[in-house]
Amino acid sequence: MFSKRCRSTPLASLEPTMHRFVELCVDMRKGRTAKGELMQYKNIAQNNKGAIEAVITRFVQLAGQKVRAAVRVDLDDLEASKTPESILPGAVSGDQSTDRTDRTRVTPWLKFLWESYRTSLKTLKNNARLDQTITQQAFKFCLKHNRKVELRRLYETLRLHLSNVA
C-alpha cells in the first residue's frame, strides 16, 4: 500500500486511508495483509504514537464487532429454528447442526479476532500504554471464549516482550 512517495505524505491525510484499509481488511478477513500494512504505517508514524494507536484500536474494535455480530446471528438462527418438532428428530438421530453452524460462522471470526490481537501486540510491543490495553482485551477474550491455547500463546508473547525489554 505504501510506496516511497507515500512515506513523505503527511499523517493527517494517511490516517483516514488507513482506517478505511483496516475496515476492508476486517470485512474480508485479511489479517496478514493488515499486519504488513500496520507495520509499515507504524514505521511511517514513528513520531506520532496517537496515529498508530487510533488505527490499531479501530482494527481490534472492528474485529470484536464482527465476532459479536456472528454470535448474535448464530443465536438468532438457533432460537428461530428450535421448535419441539425440530428438536425431537435431531435428538434421536444425534444431529450436531448447532455445532456445525458454530464452526462455520463464529469460529472463523474468533480466529480472526485472535489474529488481530496478536498483530496489535506485535505492532505495539514498544508502546506500553496501548500494549497493556490490548493485552487486557486479549486476556478477557481468552477467558470469555475458553481459549486455552491462545492464552498460552499470549503468555509466550508477553514473556518474549518482557525479555526484549530487559
Rank of each mutant, 00 (worst) to 15 (best):
L124N: 04
A70C: 00
T57F: 08
I52W: 03
E23V: 05
R68M: 03
H145F: 11
L160T: 15
T107P: 02
L160D: 13
N127G: 09
S13I: 14
K30S: 13
K148D: 08
T157F: 03
L154Y: 01
S81T: 08
E23Q: 09
S86M: 05
N48R: 12
R103L: 13
T157P: 00
D27S: 05
Q136S: 06
S93N: 11
K140T: 06
D99L: 12
Y155L: 11
S163I: 10
G94H: 04
D131L: 15
K42V: 07
N146L: 10
F59S: 01
N43D: 13
L75A: 14
E23K: 11
D77F: 05
T9H: 09
L154R: 01
M39R: 15
N126A: 14
E156W: 05
R32K: 12
D99M: 14
M18Q: 02
C25P: 03
K122H: 11
V106R: 00
S93H: 06
F21P: 01
R72L: 10
R147E: 11
A54I: 07
R32G: 15
Q132N: 15
N164W: 11
L124R: 05
F139L: 07
A34K: 01
L154V: 00
E115H: 09
T119R: 02
R105I: 03
R152E: 15
L130F: 08
V149H: 08
T101C: 08
T157V: 04
T98K: 06
L11V: 10
W109S: 04
R58H: 15
A166T: 12
E53D: 15
R105G: 05
V60Q: 01
W109H: 05
R72M: 07
S97F: 10
R129H: 12
L11P: 02
G64Q: 02
T119E: 06
G31R: 00
V60M: 02
M28P: 02
A51Q: 07
Y41I: 04
K148H: 06
N43V: 10
G94L: 05
V71I: 04
D99F: 13
F141L: 02
E79H: 10
R118I: 04
Q132I: 05
L38R: 01
T107V: 11
T107H: 03
C142V: 03
A12Y: 09
R7N: 11
V26Y: 00
K49Y: 04
A12Q: 14
L130H: 10
P10A: 06
R147N: 07
C142M: 01
H145V: 02
D74E: 13
D74G: 00
E79W: 07
S8T: 11
Q61Y: 09
R20S: 09
T135E: 00
V26K: 00
V73T: 03
L110A: 02
L110G: 04
Q40V: 15
M39C: 14
Y41L: 11
S116E: 01
T33G: 11
V149W: 08
E150H: 03
L24N: 14
H19C: 08
Q65K: 08
A51H: 05
H145N: 11
A63D: 00
R58K: 13
F139A: 05
E79G: 03
K30G: 04
L24T: 12
I56Q: 05
K30F: 06
T98W: 12
R29P: 01
L24K: 15
S13Q: 15
A128Y: 11
Q132S: 14
D102A: 13
R103H: 11
E53V: 09
M28V: 06
A80L: 07
F139V: 09
K66W: 01
T33K: 09
R20N: 10
A128M: 10
